[in-house]
Deep mutational scan, measured.
Amino acid sequence: MAAAAAAGAGPEMVRGQVFDVGPRYTNLSYIGEGAYGMVCSAYDNVNKVRVAIKKISPFEHQTYCQRTLREIKILLRFRHENIIGINDIIRAPTIEQMKDVYIVQDLMETDLYKLLKTQHLSNDHICYFLYQILRGLKYIHSANVLHRDLKPSNLLLNTTCDLKICDFGLARVADPDHDHTGFLTEYVATRWYRAPEIMLNSKGYTKSIDIWSVGCILAEMLSNRPIFPGKHYLDQLNHILGILGSPSQEDLNCIINLKARNYLLSLPHKNKVPWNRLFPNADSKALDLLDKMLTFNPHKRIEVEQALAHPYLEQYYDPSDEPIAEAPFKFDMELDDLPKEKLKELIFEETARFQPGYRS
């Protein structure tokens, strides 16, 4: 834990890192770190609560700039109880001085990944967590956004079992017609939660990839272990087919990539493993919904509104309290091709509203 900075004593240090967030945020305490930044909790002297502050230093890398800009653009436009918001952003007053960006968010005690390492969940908890994931996802999908990296560590939890989806750095506007060349190379989302079509096709992607990830998360809540822990690309596919069985001819016809289709045709026939054999203690309604989410063919996979209306979630289902976005989200430009200098300018502009004396 960093010592509390005395008023006016300059930035606090946390594990050798400068955290320049005073005077409003003090009493910093280390939480963890990701690929390009550290997260601390801090005391907000204005709202009198502890908050989470993520320090991001992305400006050396085009990919990190892209992810940072995506996350900020999306989260500043989203407003939903099951999606983490941005409360404040701290950065230098000029673009030349801006080396880091500090993002202030609600402090959540833990995440689903940490929880599943230590606790076996009751059916009631599984049901409530799944409902909140789908409630947040309904809003995301209504904005025409794909999260693309749903996994237990991106689901934040607090002691009252509130759940918030975080990390929109890989999110995209849904565009089933656009052929994202190089899709697989830039697709760094965790393999275990990846839909089979991501490994088999490169053309376009749809909201059904997020539903697949939610199915993987439900299976993990039922058993405290990942359902498809593939060691590499082909191993991942083999794990999936080992449980779902061989795809039907109709399902194979959806695979545009001939090499991928021929690979699947070359494999020995596998039978589907019954879900109640894998999860003998699970609620039968939970397994019915799991089956509809972990469907090989993305066109037959359940959609988020149908999933919310499934009998497993009937005690929570309330369409009048499951809000959607006001308007579909649009990125003005494809960020993939922009140089990091341009992305830095866009991050600077996007964060201006939090600067003292800002006038829109």
Rank of each mutant, 00 (worst) to 15 (best):
V18L: 13
R353I: 14
I31C: 15
H147I: 03
L200I: 08
L150W: 08
G169A: 09
K73P: 07
E96I: 03
F129L: 14
T351K: 07
K138S: 07
V39L: 10
Y317C: 14
Y358N: 09
C216D: 04
F296D: 11
R359G: 13
Q306I: 03
Y43L: 12
L130C: 12
E109C: 04
I83W: 00
P229M: 06
M221W: 03
G34R: 11
I243H: 05
D332P: 05
A286V: 06
R225T: 00
E186C: 03
Y263V: 06
Y64P: 15
A5Q: 11
I217Q: 04
H80R: 00
T26W: 07
C127N: 03
A2E: 00
K231M: 14
W275I: 09
W212F: 11
Q306C: 03
G8R: 11
K340L: 13
P152R: 09
K344W: 02
D337P: 06
R353A: 04
A282Y: 02
P323I: 02
D175C: 06
V18H: 14
P229L: 06
H310W: 08
N82F: 04
L184A: 08
I243Y: 01
L218I: 10
E326T: 02
T181D: 06
K330Y: 06
P268E: 08
T110Y: 07
M333P: 09
Q306P: 07
N123D: 03
Q105I: 09
G32A: 10
L115A: 05
S266P: 01
Y25Q: 01
I255M: 07
H141W: 11
K330E: 06
I165Y: 04
L184H: 09
Q315A: 09
M333E: 04
E96G: 00
A92V: 10
F168K: 03
I165E: 06
P196T: 15
D321Y: 14
I198G: 04
A4G: 05
F168Y: 13
K259A: 12
D318T: 02
Y187I: 02
F329Q: 08
N281P: 01
G37P: 15
V214P: 04
N82E: 09
D235G: 00
S213G: 03
P328M: 03
W275G: 00
I83R: 00
C166F: 12
P274M: 09
D177C: 09
M38F: 12
D321A: 14
Y30H: 05
G136R: 09
A4M: 13
E326L: 06
L184K: 06
G8C: 11
T110Q: 03
A92D: 13
P311L: 10
H125A: 10
Q17E: 08
N238S: 10
A309V: 07
D332Y: 15
D235F: 04
T185M: 06
D291T: 04
G22Y: 04
M333A: 06
F228A: 01
I347E: 12
A7W: 02
S284Y: 03
P356I: 08
G215I: 06
D100C: 12
D20Y: 15
I227Y: 02
S122I: 12
T26Y: 13
P323S: 09
F59N: 13
N297R: 07
F348N: 05
N281S: 02
H310C: 04
R172D: 01
Q355H: 13
Q105H: 13
A143C: 09
Q66L: 15
L170D: 06
D20N: 13
I53M: 14
K342G: 08
I347Q: 14
S202T: 12
Y102R: 03
G215M: 06
Y131L: 03
R172V: 01
E71G: 15
M221C: 10
A3R: 13
S208Q: 06
L76F: 01
L338F: 00
V101H: 03
L150E: 02
D100M: 15
G22S: 00
R225E: 11
F354Y: 13
S320W: 10
M199S: 02
R70K: 00
L343F: 09
H180L: 15
F228N: 08
F354G: 11
I90S: 00
A282M: 05
R79I: 14
P268K: 05
H120Q: 14
C254E: 05
Y187A: 00
L222G: 10
I240D: 03
L335S: 08
E350A: 04
D291W: 02
K203R: 12
T110W: 05
A92E: 05
P11W: 12
L218A: 14
F279N: 05
F228D: 02
K270N: 15
L112A: 08
D235A: 10
M333Q: 10
N201R: 07
Q97D: 13
K342N: 15
G230V: 13
S29I: 14
G357M: 08
G85E: 11
F129A: 02
N253L: 10
A6E: 13
V273I: 01
C216Q: 05
H299M: 11
R50W: 12
L241C: 00
N154I: 15
C161V: 00
C216K: 04
E341I: 02
S360E: 14
H299Y: 14
D318F: 10
M98H: 11
G136I: 00
K300Q: 09
T159V: 11
R172H: 02
R301S: 14
V51M: 14
G204D: 08
L313S: 07
P176G: 11
V145H: 03
H80M: 04
A219P: 12
K340N: 13
R172E: 07
Y317M: 08
D251P: 03
R15W: 14
D235K: 04
K340M: 15
I243W: 05
T206P: 12
L218F: 09
